[in-house]
């Protein structure tokens, strides 16, 4: 009996430790950060062109460049803590670093972390060959066509949801072919095994850029845009506000637009209020 109680006591102790992970960071984070002169950024730089590394291992990309400019505006240096993505949100909540870039804004996450104003919009788009039977990226024009998607990705889920709507309306669905990588979906399009590819717009832009040997064309966007933003710990609202203010300055002076052209090849209008989905 005692042993059993001891076991449960230890088990609940370990649960308490896990919950202990969720304790807030320091009280006046912005003053602390300014005293140290650096902002610590947790990052998984495996998401080109948003965030990646150069051959010397330096963290680069759209968000790091913006982050360094915003930090400079606050008189701070950026220190990166590079880690796999599954450690990013736990680390942020535990206060292991001050901010992390390139997080999809969701209502669920917004309960646990605070968002700076968005730096990008994630929107899916439809890629076709230049000579194609696909008239537009509208779902009505895709009905009955064959489309390549990467398996178990958000674009695939979105297409399945759109297919449900087509089915309900009694129209032929989009025939979805699942692949592992973007290269495979492009190859299927080039071989005319499919009529189109649906993926994130920035990914498709990069594919067009990398495969100039193929007559690829963007038919247009599809589905709702999802904001992408930097996230900070709930206990540091002053830091979140300061970063939002710096980003607004960088938007006004055209830096954000210039960086979007540099990294994505296109620009996007970013919301500043009410960007967290309900």
């Amino acid at each position: 009996m005692f042993k059993r109680i001891a076991k449960y006591a230890l088990a609940s102790l370990s649960v308490a430790l896990v919950i202990g992970i969720c304790q807030p960071a320091k009280a006046d984070a912005l003053a602390d950060i300014k005293a140290k002169g650096k902002i610590v950024v947790g990052i998984d730089p495996t998401f080109s062109p948003f965030e990646f590394t150069d051959s010397a291992g330096k963290v680069i990309g759209y968000d790091p460049e913006l982050m360094e400019l915003a930090a400079k505006g606050l008189g701070l240096k950026v220190e990166y803590q590079v880690m796999a993505f599954s450690g990013i949100i736990p680390g942020l909540i535990a206060g292991a670093f001050d901010v992390t870039p390139t997080i999809n804004v969701t209502a669920e996450r917004a309960k646990k972390i605070d968002y700076v104003i968005p730096t990008a919009l994630s929107v899916n788009a439809v890629l076709t060959l230049k000579e194609t039977s696909v008239k537009s990226s509208g779902i009505a024009d895709l009905s009955g066509k064959k489309c390549a998607v990467k398996q178990t990705t958000q674009p695939e889920q979105m297409m399945k949801a759109l297919n449900d709507k087509l089915k309900a309306a009694g129209k032929p669905v989009v025939d979805l072919l699942g692949f592992e990588t973007i290269e495979q979906t492009i190859a299927a399009l080039a071989d005319k095994r499919v009529d189109c590819v649906v993926d994130d717009k920035s990914v498709l832009f990069e594919a067009i850029d990398k495969r100039k040997d193929l007559p690829l064309a963007l038919a247009g966007e599809i589905g709702d845009a999802q904001p992408i933003a930097w996230a900070a710990n709930k206990s540091t609202p002053a830091l979140t506000a300061a970063l939002s203010a710096e980003l607004k300055k960088l938007k006004v002076d055209g830096t954000v637009t210039a960086l979007q052209k540099k990294y994505f090849g296109y620009t996007m209008a970013l919301p500043e209020t009410d960007f967290i989905p309900k």
Partner: peptide, 11 residues
Amino acid sequence: YTGVLIQSRTY
């Protein structure tokens, strides 16, 4: 993870 970093840069 170093491999993942290099792979995401070089494809």
